[in-house]
Computed example of a mutant assay.
Amino acid sequence: MADRSTQARPVGRKDARRNYERLLTSARAAFAEHGVGASLNDIARTAGVGNVTLYRHFPTRQALLEALLGESLRGLRTRSDELLASPSPSGALITWLTAAVEHATAYRGLVDALVDSLADPASELHATCQAVKAAGAQLLTRAQQAGAIRPDVGASALFSLIASVAWAVERTPEHRDQLLAVMFDGLHHRVDEPTQAR
């Protein structure tokens, strides 16, 4: 009997891991088709597990998003660290902003979820979103110190701008390049048009 008990524990862990991966696969497909507001009940059903199993692994929608997106969000942080070594501070910021907007439009409704999580310390996504914001702020400061980006834009305003552009791109993807170009042009510091610090 002791031998059977010893063998059962790893099998349970394997089953739990398999259920976890099935839920992520199901959620990824559901979010791609229906956006981040997709039914969690449908996600569990498609994964072949019950709601209890779903909520054991992911107690909230934000926890499920963190599991799906945490790695790619942390990738934005890593990318910013790499871009800090770029010889072009403004080019580095533009490259990173483009990646940030693309990330925020990966699923319909994602930008709203990210903005909400950034403002909610209780959200499972909050710490990751804050780290991404801090990473972008470093690139912004470097580009401003180089005189390439207008000095009156802070990190919070920059992220509001990212969210706004992402929201618009989500609804009119055909205007993506134009919207990004307008954002970049608006951030550009023109010495003949001094900005007023806020």
Rank of each mutant, 00 (worst) to 15 (best):
F31W: 03
A32K: 07
E33Q: 04
E33V: 09
E33A: 12
H34C: 08
V36R: 12
V36D: 03
V36C: 06
G37N: 01
G37F: 01
A38W: 00
S39H: 11
L40K: 11
L40F: 05
L40C: 06
N41D: 12
N41E: 15
N41H: 14
N41M: 13
D42M: 09
D42G: 02
I43L: 15
A44S: 13
R45C: 10
R45I: 12
A47W: 00
A47T: 04
G48W: 08
G48R: 08
V49N: 14
V49E: 14
G50S: 10
N51Y: 14
V52W: 15
V52N: 09
T53N: 05
L54S: 02
Y55P: 00
Y55T: 03
Y55D: 10
H57Q: 11
H57M: 09
H57D: 09
F58Y: 00
P59G: 04
P59N: 06
T60R: 08
T60P: 10
T60K: 07
R61L: 08
R61W: 08
R61M: 05
Q62P: 01
Q62C: 06
Q62W: 08
A63L: 06
A63K: 01
A63T: 08
L64W: 03
L65E: 00
L68R: 00
L68Q: 02
L69E: 06
L69Q: 04
G70Q: 09
E71F: 15
E71M: 14
E71K: 13
S72C: 14
R74Q: 04
R74P: 01
R74N: 12
G75F: 01
L76T: 03
R77W: 05
T78F: 02
R79S: 12
R79Q: 13
D81P: 09
D81Y: 05
E82L: 11
E82K: 07
L84A: 01
L84E: 10
A85I: 02
A85V: 13
A85K: 08
S86Q: 14
P87Q: 02
P87C: 07
S88A: 14
S88G: 09
S88P: 07
S88V: 06
P89I: 02
G91Y: 13
G91H: 10
A92Q: 05
A92M: 05
A92D: 01
A92T: 09
L93F: 10
L93T: 03
L93A: 06
L93I: 10
I94K: 13
L97P: 01
L97C: 12
T98I: 00
T98P: 13
A99Q: 02
A100I: 09
V101S: 03
H103A: 15
H103Y: 13
H103P: 12
H103K: 03
H103S: 10
H103F: 13
A104N: 02
T105G: 03
Y107E: 04
Y107D: 10
G109W: 00
G109D: 01
G109I: 02
G109Y: 03
L110W: 02
L110H: 02
L110K: 08
V111Q: 01
D112I: 14
A113F: 04
A113S: 12
V115S: 11
D116M: 06
S117H: 04
S117L: 10
S117E: 07
S117C: 05
